[in-house]
Structures are given as structure tokens and as C-alpha cells.
Simulated assay, not measured.
Amino acid sequence: MTKHRPSILITNDDGITAPGIKVLIELMGELGDIVVVAPDSPQSGMGHAVTIAKPLRLDKVDVYDGVEMYQCSGTPVDCVKLAVNKVLHKKPDLLVSGINHGFNSSINVIYSGTMSAAMEGAIEGIPSVGFSLGDFKQDADFSATRPFVSAIAKEVLANGLPLGTLLNVNFPVGHKIKGLKVCRQAIAKWSEEFDERVDPHGRPYFWLTGKFLLNDKGEDTDEYALNEGYASVVPVHFDFTSYNAIPTLKNWNFNL
């Protein structure tokens, strides 16, 4: 009797030719039947944006031999929606997004296209994982992440995830990762600044800059784990309800 090979959807926000997605293609191909649907150009920082004001293009491409791949003109979330509805015509057994160039730990999960693609998978009821490495360089070395990516994917395939929950996995830079820690999301924020410049036509323009402010000294956070040389795994859910605020709000006087 032939053993069932799970179906695995691969996507990202760095674009279909990014080095990080190649690692996922290689590793997931060992675990199941893969399909890749990814943006045709970088879409970092797009969050959970969807395309509604212009048509979407979806083209089959031949980037890696023997791999079914499609490039999409839209956002990472668009890629997941099109993959489920127009490519697979079903929900895959696993969705993996990444491996992103740069951390998506703590507050960065809000802005991340990588994590929003995984979030869309979770919304669809698909066990989903977003992977990120804290190295923005195009020639980033992903070799140390490989055994962890495989191990996490195998566990998710074997056990599933709670409904509405996905995993945010981040890897520190370096040739040796000490291990893996299940963590909570650190409390942090960006202090934004805008660098104002003038173009050759005399019109002002702005570059977003800023500093990352970590306001959390806890030793159970993703930021702490990463700073100590561990990979961090944070279970994330898309229910944004602040349940502890409900009793307070119920005592307010909303009489108009």
C-alpha cells in the first residue's frame, strides 16, 4: 500500500526567486508533494494586504526543474488565496512561508508579508508556519536552519495545529543554532523617523527609518531566545480580541 504524501504549499514575501524559498522547496520536497505560489517581486512589509483595485496575474514558471511553480502579481496573501482556489482547488496539508530575509519576531509579525501569508493559511484552516532568518543579505547562509525547518514541518504534519493558530519561527544568524525554544512574543515597538530629501525636480520625498525598542526584559520571549542564540517558536492566533478588557468595557456607560 502506497503511503500518502502530504500536499505542501510554499510561499513567501521576498519573491519567487529569493534564496530563502529555495531552501523550503528543497526541504519540503523531501516531505511531500509541493506547489509554490509566490509573488513575482519582493513584497516585504505588505502585512495582510489584498489586491482589490487591479487585476491579478498568475503565471506558471519554470524556476527549478520538476517543481510546480506559479508567480503572482499580487501580495503574499493574494498568493495563498489564489493557490487554494485556482491552483490546488483544495486546502493543502501544510503551508510554509519564507524563509524570510530578516527577523519577524515580536511586533514585526504585524507588518510581515511572510507571516501574513501564513496567517491567511491559518484563517483557511491550514496548518501554517512562517520561517524567518535574521539576515537581510541576498547571500544569507540558511544552512543552520535546515534541520529545524524539517523537524518543525514534520511535527506540524504529524500533529496539526489548534484551529486558528499558526507558528512564527525565527532563526538567529550564525553557523550554529543552540536549539529551539517555544516562546511568547516580546513587547516591543518601532520608533519611526522619516528622512526627508528632495528629488532632482525639487519635490520632497521621504524614507522611513527608525529604531527597534525592546521594552520587555522577560527571559521567555522570542527576542531573548534569539539574542541567546536559539531559534524561537511563537504560537500566534488571528483572534485579536482583548478578552481581559471586556469586563471593563461592559461597565462603561454607552447611553447616548
Rank of each mutant, 00 (worst) to 15 (best):
K3F: 03
P6Y: 04
S7Y: 02
D14I: 06
P19N: 10
K22S: 14
M28D: 06
G29H: 06
L31G: 09
L31R: 06
L31F: 02
D33W: 03
V35N: 02
V35E: 01
V36S: 01
P39Y: 01
D40R: 13
P42R: 13
G45E: 04
A49H: 02
V50Q: 11
T51L: 01
A53G: 14
R57P: 11
L58E: 06
D59V: 13
K60Q: 15
D62T: 00
V63T: 14
D65M: 07
E68R: 14
C72V: 05
S73G: 04
G74Q: 02
D78H: 04
C79Y: 02
L82G: 08
V84R: 03
V84L: 12
H89A: 10
H89C: 06
K91Y: 08
G98Y: 05
I99T: 11
H101A: 08
H101G: 10
I107N: 02
N108V: 14
I110Q: 00
I110H: 13
S112N: 09
M115C: 10
M119R: 12
G121F: 07
A122C: 00
G125N: 01
I126P: 03
S128M: 05
F131C: 02
L133R: 00
G134L: 13
G134N: 07
D135H: 09
K137E: 07
K137H: 14
Q138V: 12
T145S: 08
R146A: 12
P147W: 09
P147R: 08
A151M: 15
E155G: 02
L157Q: 09
L163D: 12
L163G: 14
L163Q: 15
L166W: 02
N168P: 07
N170K: 02
V173I: 13
G174E: 06
H175N: 14
H175A: 15
H175T: 15
I177V: 04
K178E: 01
K178I: 07
G179M: 03
L180V: 15
C183K: 09
Q185P: 07
W190A: 15
E192F: 14
F194A: 12
D195T: 14
D195N: 14
R197T: 09
V198L: 10
D199M: 00
D199E: 06
P200L: 05
P200I: 03
G202H: 13
G202S: 11
P204N: 10
Y205T: 11
F206C: 13
L208A: 15
L208P: 11
G210W: 12
K211E: 14
F212S: 05
G218I: 04
E219A: 11
D222G: 00
E223N: 12
A225E: 04
A225S: 04
N227C: 15
E228I: 09
G229L: 06
G229P: 07
G229Q: 07
A231N: 01
V233E: 01
H237Q: 09
F238T: 10
D239C: 12
D239A: 11
P247L: 04
L249C: 08
N251R: 13
N253L: 05
N253P: 11
